[in-house]
Amino acid sequence: MQGMEGEMLKGHLDMIVLAALSAGPAHGYAIIEHIRHKSGEAFDLPEGTVYPALHRLEQAGLLSSRWTTAPSGRRRRVYVLTKRGERSLASQSEVWHKFATAIGGLLAATGPQRKPA
């Protein structure tokens, strides 16, 4: 995503990552795929930017992580939402819904703009 949409996405990246992990423990690649799939391919962020967000959320105690070995034998770092992370997601989600409802109402009242003749 570029420009304004990219900035909007970055601003909500923590909530997006927390939401992706609410489905269950996952490693970085799976989290990114989950975000891409669930957003209908709309959120196609530079994949490398998700890892700093994961580290930051872990540092804040909202996630925990551990190394596991996949059936393929490949070692992966799996992230899990902590109780604190669940609470933070619930709170951010509530704020987001209120905000989205308010903006939706505002835009609905505006209606389509007409071009001057």
Partner: peptide, 11 residues
């Protein structure tokens, strides 16, 4: 490095 390596190999 380890995480990025796993990611790139999976990609």
């Amino acid at each position: 490095r380890q995480e990025a390596e796993v990611h790139l190999l999976e990609a």
